[in-house]
Structure formats: structure tokens, C-alpha cells
């Protein structure tokens, strides 16, 4: 499951998602937002993540949909009043703004789903460690404790029930006291073990000198090229944004949307940025499909002409 976009260096993936996140918040323009939404959704589908996406969809739609509904109810800015609801004016601008907010939220949600799938915790920690080795080490050790403590607490709960310390029975006061006791057992045990961990770290020379970082990911030429493409496209979009492209104005009065040459450059840059992983993923799909179709000839091509052995013996 590590082909396509997941096989790129973590820094490429991080740049991509950081860019998407930034653009989703900066570019308040339906065309850009819908392009981004579609691009990430297709990426997820290509990666075979349709099912988790579908499972979460009702929740996301509810969240985002409620924004779309609530915004016109609370915001009464804008000049086109459509009708009155409970004596409150409902404006066209507020409805459009709500819809836009809905798209922004949906985009953010879907970007996060994709991010979680592509940039796993260890990839992120790998990048983080390169930037801040000490804090990264600390974070890693802390992260490891969460599932560890969960497993231990489960064991402790099971055993302490034998001696009547159980959060499932008794009145509230007793339950709370028992809960604290269980936590105390967990802490004493874990602290005691932490002493041994500290010994083991010291025995292996922790803190003697500046730590280096072991690299499991290699930045290859494709990754460098991707980084360059993403950076250039991102800069084009940012430049466009500074020039005032990629924004529509709704409040206080909707302005007609214009699509000129500058806007087109900005949008093309944005498309290139958002669609790059799709290209990678699509090529991966194509690669495997075509490799199935291929009929391999004998690996050693047959050469015509006099044979090596016979020619020498001559």
C-alpha cells in the first residue's frame, strides 16, 4: 500500500498538504475550492479510501451543512433581501456566504482525511526530528506511552477487581476513589519502570553529544522535482493572491466574478499544485494495469549472427 503518492518523501507530502490547507483558507473562491475538493476526493478514491470517506461523510455534511443553514439565520448583511424568516431578513449574500463556508469546511475535512492516510505519525515525527531532535525524541517517547498505559490499565483493572477495587460498582465516591487507586498503581508501576528505561538510555550513551538522526526515507530525484514543481506552483498562487486573484467579494454586496488573464495563470498554477498527486497515483494505477497486460518475451534477446563459441573456435 505504499505506491503512488504515499511513496513520496514525507517533506513533499507535508508541503502538499500545508499548501492545500493554506489555500483552502486563503482562497475564498468557489472555483478554487471546488477544484481542491474534487482533487483530494479523487486522490482518496484512487488510493482505495472510498469506504472510510463514505463512512465519515454524514458527519462532515452535517457539520458543514449546519454552517450553511445557520449563517443566513444569524448574519443579515448584504443588500438582496430574499424573504423574512421570523421577522429576520434572509439575504442572498448570507446564503451564498454560508454555502462557501460549507465548501471550505468540507475541503478542510477531506484534506485532513487524506493527510492522515498519507502522512502517518512516523513520517511526521521523522520530519519533526530533523527540525527539533530533542523535542521530537520526547514526543516520540510520550506517544509510545499512550497505548502502553492503556494496555497496562486494562490489566490492572482486571486484577484489582479481585480485591474489590472496581470503578464499575459502588457509589460515586467509591468509584472515584477506586479510579484514583487504579491510576496510582499504574503510575507507581510505570515510574518504577521508567527508572530502568533511564538506566538503559544512559547505558547506551544518551546525552553524550549531539544526536544524529537515522534516515529511513530517501529524498530521490523525483522527490526533488516534485518539491520544485509544488514550490513554483504554490508561489504562483500566492503571488496571484497578493495581486487580488482567487477571491470573491460577497459582503457587503456581491461583485460580479471576472475571469481575466491573471486569474487564469493563478488558477492554472493552482490546478497544477492540487493535481500533481493525482498524476502520480494515476500513473501508478496505469503501471500495474499495463504490467498485467504485458506479455514478457524471453529475457535474453536472441541475437543473430555467428555464435561466440563457434566463431572463436574457427
Amino acid at each position: 500500500m505504499n505506491g503512488g503518492f504515499r511513496s513520496v518523501h514525507p517533506s513533499v507530502a507535508l508541503l502538499y498538504y500545508a499548501g492545500l490547507l493554506l489555500f483552502a483558507m486563503l482562497l475564498f473562491h468557489p472555483l478554487y475550492l471546488l477544484t481542491e475538493l474534487t482533487a483530494v476526493a479523487i486522490l482518496l478514491l484512487l488510493q482505495g479510501q472510498g469506504r472510510p470517506l463514505l463512512r465519515g461523510l454524514p458527519f462532515y455534511l452535517l457539520m458543514a451543512g449546519s454552517v450553511a443553514v445557520l449563517n443566513p439565520l444569524f448574519s443579515h448583511r448584504g443588500s438582496h433581501i430574499l424573504f423574512y424568516f421570523l421577522d429576520q431578513p434572509i439575504t442572498l449574500e448570507a446564503i451564498l456566504y454560508g454555502l462557501m463556508m460549507m465548501v471550505v469546511l468540507l475541503t478542510l475535512f477531506i484534506v485532513f482525511i487524506s493527510y492522515n492516510y498519507t502522512v502517518t505519525t512516523d513520517k511526521f515525527m521523522y520530519l519533526f526530528a530533523a527540525a527539533a531532535p530533542k523535542s521530537a525524541l520526547l514526543t516520540l517517547m510520550a506517544i509510545r506511552f499512550v497505548p502502553l498505559f492503556q494496555r497496562r490499565l486494562h490489566q490492572i483493572t482486571l486484577i484489582q477487581r479481585i480485591r474489590g477495587i472496581d470503578v464499575g460498582t459502588g457509589n460515586l465516591r467509591k468509584r472515584m476513589r477506586d479510579g484514583m487507586t487504579l491510576l496510582k498503581v499504574l503510575l507507581t508501576w510505570s515510574l518504577e519502570e521508567a527508572l530502568q528505561t533511564a538506566d538503559s538510555m544512559k547505558a547506551r550513551g544518551f546525552g553524550l553529544r549531539k544526536r544524529s538522526a537515522y534516515a529511513i526515507y530517501k529524498l530521490d530525484r523525483r522527490d526533488v522535482a516534485l518539491l520544485a514543481i509544488l514550490a513554483v506552483c504554490g508561489l504562483i498562487v500566492l503571488g496571484g493572491w497578493l495581486q487580488g486573484y482567487g477571491k470573491i467579494e460577497i459582503y457587503p454586496r456581491m461583485k460580479p466574478v471576472q475571469f481575466g488573464g491573471g486569474e487564469a495563470t493563478c488558477f492554472i498554477g493552482f490546478c497544477l499544485f492540487a493535481l500533481t498527486p493525482l498524476w502520480l497515483e494515476g500513473r501508478e494505477k496505469w503501471l500495474w494495469r499495463s504490467s498485467q497486460r504485458n506479455v514478457y518475451l524471453s529475457a535474453t534477446p536472441i541475437k543473430t549472427g555467428p555464435h561466440l563459441m563457434s566463431s572463436r573456435s574457427r
Binding site: L140, T197, S200, M201, R204, L208, R211, S212, Y214, I216
Partner: peptide
């Protein structure tokens, strides 16, 4: 109690990184 990291490769690399 001696293990510091959560994946095998990282645990192995730990001493060398130090």
C-alpha cells in the same frame, strides 16, 4: 523496561543516534 522507542528500527538506531 529497556526499550525507549516504539518501532524496531528506531530502537536499534537509538544508541547510534546518541
Amino acid at each position: 523496561a529497556q526499550i525507549v522507542m516504539d518501532t524496531v528500527w528506531h530502537e536499534l538506531a537509538f544508541a547510534m543516534e546518541n
